[in-house]
Design a binder for these strands. Structure first.
Lengths: 364, 364
DNA sequence: CTGTTAGCGCCTTCAA
DNA sequence: TTGAAGGCGCTAACAG
């Protein structure tokens, strides 16, 4: 099973030509006469020859590979981004080396270095919190790097983000419109960019109506989160609404409220950031800010390939901020709609980074 | 930005030693004196030298890379497998080249070939349906290949599967125990291994009680599936239960039943194969067969590395079949339980490939 | 249109 | 303990 692999030299010998002729035949880099082409073709077939991309990469300048680092693949948000990046890469004829950082800065850095050593032509990453200084060194200055979901400090990188603050503000504003003033915030990790930015938007909305921020619940684990929610519900002034700042905290929240048999939205209203599968099948359906997940990954990958192709090397780095959508369903207090097709059982409002709709609508 | 990369020769020159000394220092492949080591170390630091793994791979025998091909990353089942494989690879010091086949045999084959050309040391894949003959050629006979979720024909490959047939049989048996005899089956694609095998289990269960199979609904799209379900509900002898053979068809089913305001389990009972996020938050919570998703990926990766290390080259190929669990919740007609912690609001029964529990339990 | 030479960056082999 | 030569498989550059 471990016979030596067949090389271009074997093909050349069998075909009775030089290695260069075979190379040219393979790459179409120069004309090859009909009959030699035929001979080479047959030799390749007979020997089941496959060119060695490793050797090609070493010789040339281009490994035709990009690196992708995401925290987890288990999270549907990250998985969808990875899928989008992978799809774009495939279209460009690039391979993807993918790894997970597990939200661990050391793993992330080690894996990023390994990718450099493997000569990737670029890197797309969802950077771990608090690693800002890690990517400014010599090592990372030779290839383009695009971050998504979270910014990477420094003008050296491109970033693709969404309207976190404006989106959070909009949905909290909406909850306020339903009459809530004591709204609890479910966060994950204080150092997470998205959560913090959404918290800022949450505070914006409350401040705008003259209310102080409600309790901030640090959901470091499902159990911890459940305990916090329960203690809130039993406090003297329980929140009348919960805002889950991402899909994980939303899941924790729903699990807990369901286990505690808390009626939604009668006893507490619920809204979240990042749409989840089944949000419209849950009972009641869940009001959320939806992010254009696939497009985020797609855009990041396209940006990277633009840099790789050297199209606009001189340009200053981009920071793209995509709009999000407010999806009004039942959990906020709006009357949920029952639809014929699954795609129209909600009302959607686009939230741009800067502009906000004049007035949050209420369904009934 | 595009200065030539620093190489081992640069380091050697600056340190005033030979290239081999640097190489030995890097790999610890032979003794290097304290003081030269120090000089080399400083030179490496100063030049920000990073070894070129591509060159290493070309020279040596080992690219320290494995390839992974899954149909989609969007599907949480596949994403979880990919995560598990990636984790094992990281532990082994291997990189992962990952791509998606989009369930397209041509893409899959093309990508697999590309991976071979990149000299991967092994391949883990969830093979597209109907490609059985593609991987028996010369090209694929030099590296180990492990398939998961679906078998790869031929004794040449390892496969990791689950108790599809026994699991489906068990859950359908359970539905029959609730008094159902007209149970519709939601399939995806007739050529999908898992769906077909589960269909066989579904038929087993019905046959065992002397009932004929119910309608087979081909859910090729959400709309198509919804239409089929609706027409079933309006037929003269509507099914009293639905068995969704995977997580996607379950989603279609729930969307449709929810939109149609069909009461579960009062009007129709529901059960599925493959647990979905939120299955226990849905209203009612959903009875399913749960697969050990992470372990499937982990086991497949471990099997691959065992082959790569050449531990048991002589052994015949493995086909591992993992047990699944029947998770009894509310949608089948059992009374759902409300739990303090999210992890105990159901009853679970382990289903092994061969053995079945004597009697399906009913909760109330 | 085709072949020869040289070298990408590294490490195995052999000699010092 | 260290260094020099040679080659992994491929292709750019230069002949012919």
């Amino acid at each position: 099973m471990e016979q030596r692999k067949t090389t271009i030299a074997d093909v050349a010998r069998l075909a009775g030509v030089g290695k260069m002729t075979v190379s040219r035949f393979l790459n179409g880099s120069a004309k090859v006469s009909e009959e030699t082409a035929e001979k080479v073709h047959r030799a390749i077939k007979n020997l089941h020859y496959q060119p060695n991309e490793i050797a090609r990469s070493l010789r040339g300048l281009n490994s035709k590979t990009i690196g992708v680092i995401v925290p987890y693949l288990l999270d549907p948000f990250f998985a969808t981004c990875a899928h989008a990046i992978s799809t774009v890469a495939k279209e460009q004829g690039y391979s993807v080396i993918l790894t997970t950082s597990d939200e661990n800065p050391e793993i992330e850095h080690k894996q990023a270095i390994l990718m450099l050593r493997r000569q990737v032509n670029g890197l797309v990453m969802i950077p771990v919190a608090g690693n800002d200084h890690l990517y400014v060194g010599e090592a990372f200055s030779h290839i383009p790097i695009v971050s998504l979901d979270r910014p990477l400090a420094g003008p050296h990188f491109d970033s693709v983000l969404v309207a976190n603050r404006a989106g959070a503000k909009a949905v909290v504003e909406h909850l306020i419109g339903h009459g809530h003033r004591n709204i609890a915030f479910l966060g994950l990790n204080r150092s997470l960019y998205a959560v913090n930015t959404r918290y800022a938007g949450y505070c914006d909305a409350l401040a705008q109506s003259g209310y102080p921020p409600g309790p901030y619940l640090d959901c470091i684990s499902q159990e911890k989160c459940a305990a916090l929610i329960r203690s809130q519900l039993q406090s003297s002034q329980p929140p009348t609404a919960f805002f889950a700042s991402n899909n994980l905290t939303m899941r924790y929240l729903l699990h807990t409220l369901y286990a505690e048999r808390v009626a939604i939205p009668r006893r507490v209203a619920v809204a979240g950031f990042d749409d989840i599968e089944m949000a419209d099948v849950a009972h009641p359906s869940i009001t959320v800010i939806r992010q254009p997940v696939y497009q985020i990954g797609e855009l990041a990958a396209n940006l990277l390939f633009k840099r790789i192709s050297g199209a606009d090397v001189a340009e200053t780095r981009n920071r793209v901020v995509l709009p999000v959508e407010l999806i009004l369903r039942g959990s906020c207090g709006c009357k949920a709609r029952f639809a014929k097709s699954a795609s129209d059982n909600f009302t959607s409002i686009v939230i741009n980074p800067e502009t906000l709709p004049e007035q949050m609508p209420m369904l009934d």
